[in-house]
Design a protein around this nucleic acid. Structure first.
Lengths: 195, 195
DNA sequence: TCAACATACGGAACGGCGTTCCGGATGCCA
DNA sequence: TGGCATCCGGAACGCCGTTCCGTATGTTGA
C-alpha cells in the first residue's frame, strides 16, 4: 500500500517532509509504548514520547486502532505468509496447522493487551478486528481444509471460530504466570483431531 | 454473608429503611440494566433506573465490580453447589466435569460482557475476579481430581487455568452469531481426555 | 530569493466514563 | 417532638479517546 509512486506520473504529490518524519516518529514511539505499557497505553503518552501533539496522531491514524494495525502490520503479514510455507514444508497438514497457530499465539502473547483489544466490540477497534480477519482467516481456512482433506481433524470447524477461540485464549497471557495460554491452545488443537 | 443478626444481641443495629429499600432497588435496576445493555452499562444509567443518585450506588457497593458480584451471587453459588451434586449423580467424573463446565458456560454466555470483565486486569474488577475464583476454583479442582483419579483426563491441568480458559472462550459469545463459544469449550474439554 | 498557499501542527476543548465529596434531607429513638 | 446518626443527590474531579481550529511551516512558482 505504501510507495505507489514507482509509476510514471505522480497523482499523489508526496507528503510534506515534517509529516513523514512525524509519522515515523509516531510509529516508533507507539511501538515502544506498546512494549512498555501495552496497547492500552493512553494516546497522550504516545504523543509525548513522539514529541508531538495529540492532533498529529489523529491526522496520520484515524483512530488508535489504525495506529495499532500500522505498528503490527509487518508481523501480521509475516504470520499470514508463513501459512502456505508451513503447509509446503511440514510432514502433515495438521502439523502445519499446529505450528502456524503457535506462531499466532507467539505473536499475541507478547503484545500486552492486544488479544483483548482484538475481541473488544468497541466500534473504535473495528478496523483492527477487520484487518486481522481479512489477513488471517483465509490462511487458517487453507490450513484447515488441508487437514480435513487428510482426514486428520474433524470437518466441522471454521477458520473464523478457531481464530477467535485462539485469540480469546491469549487474553491476559503474560499478565499472570499462573495462566498458560499456550497449553490451553494446544489442548484446543488436540481436541480438533479425529478420534 | 447477609442477615447475620439471627443471634441474640444485635451488634449491627440494622440499616435504615430507606437504605434497605434503595439497596433492593439498585440490585433490581442493575440486573435489568445488565440484561439490556450488558455489565458495561454506565453507572449513571443504573442510578437513573433505580431512581437514585450515583452517590447512593457507591455507598452500597464500593465499586461497580461489587455490584456485579451482588447481582450474580446467587447464580454463582448455585453453580458452585452443582459441582458436588453432578459428581455424585453422573456416571463418570468426566461426564460430571463436562456438565459442570456447560453450566458455567451457560451462565457466562448469557451475561453480556461479564466474561470480558472477569478477565480484565483493571484493578476495579479485582473483587469480581476474586469472588469467582474463591468460589469456583475449589469446585473445579474437585471435579478435575476425580476425573484424573478415574484416569479419564490427563493429570497436568489445573483448575485455575481451565476456568480461565473457559471464561476466555466465552468472551464475545452472544455478540456474534458466527462465534460459537460452546463448541470451542467442548473441543477444549475433549482435548483434556487421555488419548 | 521571496511571497503565497496548501498542508500539517499543537493543544485546548468536548463528551463520556468511574469514582469521590459534601451540604442538605430523612428515618430513628429517647 | 427534638436531636442526631445515617443516608441521599448530584456537582465535581481526573482520566480517557477524539475533534476542532488558530497558528506555524514546508513547498512551489515567479
Amino acid at each position: 500500500m505504501a510507495d505507489i509512486d514507482s509509476g510514471s506520473e505522480r497523482p499523489v504529490p508526496r507528503k510534506r517532509a515534517d509529516a513523514r518524519r512525524n509519522e515515523r516518529a509516531l510509529l516508533d514511539a507507539a511501538a515502544a509504548a506498546f512494549v512498555t505499557s501495552g496497547v492500552d497505553v493512553p494516546v497522550r503518552d504516545i504523543a509525548v514520547r513522539a514529541g508531538v501533539g495529540v492532533g498529529t496522531i489523529y491526522r496520520h491514524f484515524p483512530s488508535r486502532a489504525d495506529l495499532i494495525v500500522a505498528v503490527y502490520r509487518h508481523q501480521i503479514e509475516a504470520c499470514a505468509e508463513a501459512g502456505p510455507a508451513l503447509l509446503a514444508d511440514s510432514d502433515t497438514p495438521h502439523a502445519a496447522l499446529a505450528q502456524w497457530i503457535d506462531l499466532f499465539v507467539d505473536f499475541l502473547v507478547t503484545k500486552h493487551g492486544l488479544a483483548a483489544a482484538l475481541q473488544s466490540d468497541d466500534a473504535a477497534f473495528q478496523s483492527l478486528h477487520a484487518y486481522f480477519l481479512d489477513r488471517l482467516v483465509p490462511v487458517c481456512d487453507q490450513l484447515l481444509d488441508a487437514a480435513v482433506a487428510a482426514q486428520e481433524i474433524r470437518p466441522d470447524m471454521d477458520a473464523y471460530g478457531l481464530l477467535r477461540g485462539v485469540g480469546n485464549l491469549c487474553i491476559g497471557a503474560g499478565n499472570d504466570p499462573r495462566y498458560d495460554a499456550r497449553r490451553l491452545v494446544d489442548l484446543l488443537v488436540a481436541g480438533l483431531r479425529v478420534r
